[in-house]
Amino acid sequence: MKILVPVKRAVDYNVKVRVKPDNSGVDLNNVKMAINPFCEIAIEEAIRLKEKGVATEVVVVSIGDKACQEQIRTGLALGADRGIHIETDAGVVVDSLQVAKLLQKVVEAEKPDLVILGKQAIDSDNNQTGQMLAALTGMPQGTFASEVVVADGTVNVTREIDGGLQTVKLQLPAVVTTDLRLNEPRYASLPNIMKAKRKPIDVKPVADFDVDMTSKVTVIKVEAPAQRVGGVKVADVAELVHKLKNEAKVIA
């Protein structure tokens, strides 16, 4: 069984981003970049399925400029077998639908049994790509997964939903998107990082994919959020309750 894991290069989750003074976007100059945390969970899940003997090959794919090969290498160091890089020009923003269309072409060529990807990227916070890919390829989907069990041409996905957990059974091939508690990703060991340098990455220009890259959604402006101003410290519980009742008037 072959697993395809699409990953995104994103701002490191520890970075507190700043809005550019001209409100054109977020300042990413000299900001630490990393693999999107949910994508890392997706790689880990694929590697674990390979270690269990369920999967035979794990392919990592990323879309972006040359720099995103770093994140593909991270995936290879964690245990993926090979990489595919769909290369765009530097600074090009690709929206979720375009990513899904590019991945659709990769799915058509690679014919994976399972596609595992992060539920959202922590930059655009869209939460769209996996579902769009599933729709375009006619695959069923199991989003926000906290458990993935593959058996007999199907996959049971336990999903984190607002009221608790829901389990669905999907026929393979299928798309799974990861939630936080699916697993805890490992760290790549030094020997594996060295080994990853020899694993192949197939680089393909985005122009080869015949996908319309003009987006119909434009960002008009990006602003810093309204800052909440901290209030006062109260001395004790009695003062807190008094203020909540008489000043804020939020409790009776």
Binding site: V26, D125, P225
Partner: peptide
Amino acid sequence: IYAGNAIATVQ
């Protein structure tokens, strides 16, 4: 976007 650290107006 960015976990609410930026607010985008999109058309």
